[in-house]
């Protein structure tokens, strides 16, 4: 087994002045190298918190996360985090934005500049390298945000509803785009989403969570043809069957 990420009995309790809320009950699963995992669940079930815990931004109340066998204690830049909004810095050019993770780590050599240049060229951002984010379309900005997370060569990508801020049309094509880039770069990805169709169209496995305090309800192997793009997968005949099944799980069995 080539496990890159292990969640070992993760639990989380939120503390507020008026009391404590158990958000995550106990969650364990592992992700293999090169896998694309989607996590879905009812709103407020702590999906985003799971990613924050994996990234080391949030300390779990119990259990531990291991990346490549090493326990996560604090964020060290070994993972790439992509958020709902692109969060590109408006005062930096696209190239400077993409270079940011390298700069934070103090990696300056020519090999790194080369890496940034080749990524920009490979994924059609070369001609925009001197542009500012405000001059790019929403789809292009999200692509630049992905390239930024790739520049420091993380092993693991965490995607927190990265398409939800886009309109439907753009969303479908950016999803295709991002999926293709992640597969080309042979990255492992964990996607959190509230969109069942999105999960089915990209994931190798789907983790379904219960409502708060969340536990794992089911982990599904999605057995569609993995060579298809997310858009093509949506046309697949299994697609609606999967949709119905997951919809049922989220809406009825979760009660």
């Amino acid at each position: 087994m080539n496990e890159i990420l292990e969640l070992d009995r993760i639990s989380l309790t939120y503390h507020t002045p008026s009391g404590e809320i158990p958000a995550i009950g106990s969650i364990s699963f592992s992700v293999e190298n090169g896998e694309f995992i989607a996590i879905i669940g009812p709103s407020g079930c702590g999906k985003t918190s799971i990613l924050s815990i994996v990234a080391g931004l949030l300390k779990p109340s119990g259990g531990e996360v291991r990346i490549n066998g090493k326990k996560v204690v604090k964020p060290d830049g070994s993972i790439g985090y992509m958020l709902q909004k692109d969060e590109l810095f408006p005062w930096l050019t696209i190239e400077q934005n993409v270079r940011l993770p390298l700069e934070i780590k103090g990696l300056k050599g020519t090999e790194y500049s080369e890496k940034v240049r080749s990524l920009l060229k490979k994924y059609g951002l070369w001609e925009f390298r001197g542009s500012y984010p405000s001059e790019l379309s929403g789809g292009m900005r999200q692509r630049a945000a992905l390239i930024r997370t790739l520049s420091s060569s993380p092993d693991l990508l965490l995607l927190d509803e990265p398409f939800s801020a886009l309109d439907f049309q753009t969303r479908i094509s950016v999803c295709d785009d991002v999926y293709e880039i992640i597969k080309k770069e042979k990255k492992t990805a964990v996607l959190v989403t509230h969109d069942i169709t999105e999960a089915i169209s990209v994931a190798d496995r789907i983790v379904v969570l219960t409502k708060r305090p969340s536990k794992i309800l089911n982990i599904h192997d999605i057995d569609t043809d993995k060579t298809l793009s997310p858009l093509k997968r949506r046309e697949n005949k299994d697609f609606s069957a999967w949709f119905e099944r997951l919809w049922r799980e989220l809406n009825y069995e979760n009660k």
Partner: peptide
């Protein structure tokens, strides 16, 4: 300054001084 950008910087492993100099100050210019 947006929480998302701060979170992003932290996930990259940025320390407090880097968050100040690379994000907060240019954001406030």
């Amino acid at each position: 300054c947006g929480k998302g950008k701060i979170m992003l910087m932290k996930s990259m492993g940025a320390n407090k001084f880097q968050i100040l100099s690379k994000l907060i100050l240019p954001h406030s210019f």
